[in-house]
Design a protein around this nucleic acid. Sequence first.
DNA 1: AGTAAAAGGTTTTTT
DNA 2: ACCTTTTACT
Length: 676
Amino acid sequence: MFDSLNAEQQAAVDHTGSPLLIVAGAGTGKTKTLAARVCRIIEDGADPSRILLLTFTRRAAAEMLARVAAVSTDRAASRVWGGTFHSTANRLLRNFGQSAGLSPGFTVLDQADATDLMGIVRTDEGFGERGKRFPRKETVAGIYSRMVSSQAKLADVLETDYPWCADHSDDLKTIFTAYTARKRTHQVLDYDDLLLFWRGLTASTIGDAMRDLFDHVLIDEYQDTNPIQADIVRGMCRPDTDLCAVGDDAQAIYGFRAATVANMWEFADHFPGATRVTLEQNYRSTMPILAVANAVLGQSDEHFAKELWSSRPQGLTPILRTHHDESAQSGSVATAVLDARERGMDLREQAVLFRAGHHADGLELELTRRDIPYVKYGGLKYLESAHVKDLLALLRILDNPADQLAWHRVLATMEGVGPATVRRLSDELGIEREDDDALARFIDGAGRTPSAADEQALELRTAFAECSATEPAITPAQQVDRLKQYCALVFPNRYDDPAARVADIDQLASTAAAYTTRSRFLTELTLDPPSKTSDQAGPPHLDDDWLTLSTIHSAKGLEWRSVHLIHAADGNMPSEMALGDEHGLAEELRLMYVALTRAKDELTVNFPLRFHVNRYATDDRHVYAQLSRFVDPVRELFDEETDRREIDLREPDAALAGATVGVADEVDTLLASLWD
DNA sequence: AGTAAAAGGTTTTTT
DNA sequence: ACCTTTTACT
């Protein structure tokens, strides 16, 4: 079935009788091994529906099960329970949640929803004393999530991770209390709740029933699980459950989400009698690339001892390229990408990686200017942009007229409607009531909207009426298209660039075209949001060739023939926010390691000497940067290049620099002649 | 009272 | 570029 497994991989596939931890270095065939193990389990006669496969993304699960399906004769793979911790929690809680007081129809808030709710609660509760600036709602939601997922006290989280918010401790407590209460009364769960409720059920009287569901549990990316997820794994295992966890502690990069490699290091304590298998042969990268990666990783000892070796000894020496500034870097990378394409390497075989989404801003402009198609992963998602959320809120009301969060957003789009009017309208429409008739009442004219919004309110009522009509059934795509007209009416008040945003909605309509029901469309969108960034230039057609731009986090588990890493400067990598503490710094180092090990054949590390002081800079203020402290000690493993060309443009010969020509005077004279 | 418009700040990474 | 706070206006 799976040909050419090496001895260690085969051992990992065949092992039975005790919990198994596979320590799998980057590019060592982890996915293949895990898929082969699932196949072996099925061939041994297991019922596929009693296998649980937990992965970090839904895409990873799909990929793994596709490999299983490719070699199995019946449809066994489709019956395996595969997905993320969160999507699995979602499925289980629909079945078992009643015992925990959950209605089976509970709603799941994604991060954006949870943040909005936090914002609403905050205004409803009134905020702290005047003069003191309160943390933004994203930060409030971040503190909350950090606190919950690490199971730490608020005071400790504030002290270690959000010291600049420590002043607002009491207000935060008030907001968190109200936030939790509101989630419960509205039968709504956020991401953290999904895990907490799942863990709670395994420890409850129906824990045995849940443990009886599965005989085999497999977990991918175990280094990126948090303490609650580790509890869940323990809670789902009977003494005889066949457990297999796979991970690489050298690639642990989700500490900010409270993930901890302690789960791997303490595996043998959590599961007595556990066996460990280590995969060290790398099938992805050439030896020169691995040499750099190993040398970088060697600067930290926060991981299992492990040295990757490659079956591909020969290869190009990685390049370390210094640029004068950010725009020189963008130009150079664009040129390098095109050069590689000339040599026969398609754009899809190349990627540009960076630490933070905005690091690619300049490059995106340059790529657009040169008509190089690209797709960006990470950073602000398409679904998170304000106008898309506006339209989704309209759809969500149609889907569930009791969705208070969606109503809140939609009502506030109208002229003259602020927080106070939203609250009054909510009461008049009876959104709090369980009878689900708020939408019908609104269409019939309930709710006194301000006169400034007369036209908009009428349009909204009409649009809702048409989209909820059942007689000639309206497809989701048609509904999006109809609601777009309402958007066209209100966007000019909300946004500076209404036309572009209205046009952007078309993209959503074409996505909706793949679905027959509105409900399916919405569910799929929250459970499996497209990870691509909104981007007008996007991939025009799927059969076209395009370049990948990605944050390092989003690049986890992927590989390209050529990788261009940008902004390898101290302060960017490592991020200056991590400089303070040792563990933060170690995580940044692993992040660098993850980036380097994505490359198969060619690796270029780019480094601009100057970059903008801050992210939102409108001015031209720069700081001078040092090469990343992780790269500097291993410089000799690179071929170094300096991007002379660009520097020469900006720093003319001394002879010329001293010369003065009277051009400015001539221009001024010319201008003056226009009005004198 | 309550909203709009103008001013002033802004800690990455994401299921 | 977006969010929060302040102020000015209805």
